[in-house]
Design a protein around this nucleic acid. Structure first.
Lengths: 230, 230
DNA sequence: AGAATATATATTGTATACAATCTTTGCCTA
DNA sequence: TAGGCAAAGATTGTATACAATATATATTCT
């Protein structure tokens, strides 16, 4: 169904798309940033043809928005889109966590714990962006454990978009403290507690959502004048 | 988030992708078929550059599989992928139907009934492929009514892949008789019966699944010798 | 004859040239 | 000086030429 992704040699569309994705997920490139074809092509040492394909790939994931004759920009999800992302996650992830709990092997648990450790290390090293990316990877990893490739792809997309949402709507200045929820989830998986995992995931997603500032519509057309005179 | 899809002028990537998608959804092009770039380009009167982008779009939706240096083929979902499609739909669609029931306006109901009529007309006219496409459209329409653009995109993808699954694993020769389920669903929506709609959708999806022949793994590596000596 | 190899053909992968479109800048006019 | 207009510049859209790879055909050797 999906394309053969085994080809990750440098210079390929897939490799460039992956590198760009990582940069967006780690907030090294922020929403609204323009990705010019020439610029990206020069960086990776390839022509515009292959850059174009990579940009379209990211656009399809929702990370970029391509405007005809204007170029590709890192997406700026609206409040509605932000809500939808978490509503979709609420439908997919709790049940997937349950399935994962029923199938998790000791190797799976070890992998998850390694993820948490790396996340913690990144936070200690003040690499909030990297920590955020790893924290997202934790969620797709659960789908992988549940042996659901299709759902995993959807969750990957939603997690990616969540990263954009966090970049735009994160409330506090301090980093997300997700390690506690993630630890509890790993425990539930370890004990094959499907119902518990489902509930924990549900709560975890609500928790995340509650830390976003999605309440008042941030006036899409907030002109400079309005901002100054208010 | 998504790209500006308003540009559907003929000759654009979007228009070509849409036409190809329709052909696959209506089973006019069957799984396994190769879509050569030159061939498609000649048909639409465009160069390979734009065809290539369209093919990659379809590949991302799961409708095509692109093999490096070999070309694009209409995907042939495995039994596992087929199951996953319906498992994902089971997570997304029932709850979405509930939300749709709570929001449905008289206009929405009318639109759904129009869909059902067209589907019935297509069946009468022996256009099973067209009926199948319309029947899929019914499902995405419900997501639209639920006012969930993100989930709608996922469901659209899953419905598309379902069409491939049906092409490969459909059991009977007679057409799918979905109009009854769809009619019942519309009734639930009309009366804002969220719980009912959720249950009906759940049952409808199970019904569909039960009409597929996914039981024995079709031995991916079934050699000719094995087949003859068994 | 049959298998392995070599050649030829066809198809995809990539860069680039040219066209179309948008953006910016400078100029002119009221 | 503000507004509009026009030209210049920059960026994306598309086709095409050439390179790389895969497939099909022909050939040779045992």
């Amino acid at each position: 169904m999906l394309k053969n992704l085994s080809d990750t040699r440098p210079g390929t569309v897939e490799a460039i798309a992956a590198t760009l994705t990582e940069a967006v997920l780690e907030h090294r490139v922020l929403p609204g940033t323009k990705l010019s074809e020439d610029e990206v092509g020069e960086i990776f040492g390839v022509g515009r043809t292959v850059v174009r394909q990579a940009l379209r790939t990211l656009a399809h994931e929702g990370l970029l928005t391509i405007e005809r004759n204007r170029g590709a920009f890192v997406s700026r999800p609206t409040v509605k889109q932000a809500r939808e992302v978490f509503e979709a996650r609420a439908l997919l992830e709790p049940r997937t966590a349950r399935a994962a709990a029923e199938r998790a092997t000791p190797g799976d648990i070890a992998a998850l714990e390694k993820h948490i450790d790396e996340e913690h290390a990144a936070l200690s090293g003040d690499l909030a962006g990297r920590a955020l990316k790893l924290s997202g990877h934790f969620h797709t990893e659960i789908a992988r454990i549940a042996n659901q490739v299709t759902i995993e792809a959807f969750i990957r997309q939603l997690v990616s978009r969540s990263s954009l949402v966090i970049a735009l709507y994160w409330r506090r200045r301090n980093a997300l403290c997700e390690s506690h929820s993630h630890h509890a989830l790993v425990d539930a998986l370890r004990h094959h507690d499907g119902a518990g995992a489902e509930e924990l995931m549900k709560g975890h997603l609500l928790d995340l959502l509650s830390q976003l500032d999605l309440a008042p519509q941030p006036e899409k057309t907030l002109s400079l004048a309005d901002a100054l005179l208010r």
